[in-house]
């Protein structure tokens, strides 16, 4: 499940590699350099009084990881219970975070040509975490801006 498929190394200078993830029915992408690992979030301890989108904290190989529920962050309904979920581990300032998403897809190498800024009519909660959109064949991939995800917290509750 956590297998990351096809780590190919192209030569295109302007291209960047993304790990794609699914949240609800939307395809998202995260720059591969930002991603530390992909794991199944198990035994997440809820943190009382924390903002809603913080799923809790968990122990990942001896490190305490703060898990952020991306569905909550994006204002999406919760995933049905008992469905397995995945998390993408990222690091910021020596702290570990995990973005809980539905599932992990594959690695795409995308060039600037397919990139566009956020459409003006995008939900503000989405804009708040998105760096832009890549036009792929048959689908659109929203690029998750990790810094933005970690920076904001209060706005989510307000939204």
């Amino acid at each position: 499940m956590s297998d990351i498929v096809n780590l190919e190394h192209g030569v295109d200078q302007s291209a960047e590699e993304y790990i794609t993830v699914m949240i609800a029915d939307q395809l998202f992408g995260m720059p591969i350099l930002e991603v530390q690992d992909v794991f199944m979030p198990e035994t997440v301890t809820e943190v009382p009084l924390a903002s809603q989108d913080v799923a809790g904290v968990l122990n990942l190989r001896g490190r305490i990881v703060t898990a952020i529920d991306m569905r909550k962050r994006l204002g999406l309904p919760d995933l049905e219970e008992n469905k397995p979920r995945m998390a993408v581990g990222i690091e910021s300032n020596g702290e570990s975070y995990g973005l809980i998403i539905d599932k992990v897809g594959e690695v795409h190498r995308l060039s600037d040509e397919t990139f566009e800024v956020n459409p003006a009519n995008l939900d503000p909660r989405w804009v708040a975490i998105s760096a832009g959109v890549h036009r792929l064949d048959g689908s659109l991939m929203v690029v998750i801006d990790v810094e933005k995800v970690l920076a904001q917290k209060e706005t989510v509750i307000a939204a």
Binding site: T43, T45, V47, P48, L49, A50, V54, G56, V57, L58, N59, G62, I64, T66, I68, N93, E95, S96, Y97, L150, K153
Partner: peptide
């Protein structure tokens, strides 16, 4: 004692979190 991540640090009722012997994280 491990410090709370910066995202959770403003909760004044917790001074940190820790991993117990059974591997679970508690506040």
């Amino acid at each position: 004692v491990k410090p709370m991540s910066s995202m959770l640090r403003d909760i004044s009722l917790f001074s940190g979190n820790t991993i117990l012997g059974d591997g679970s994280v508690i506040m």
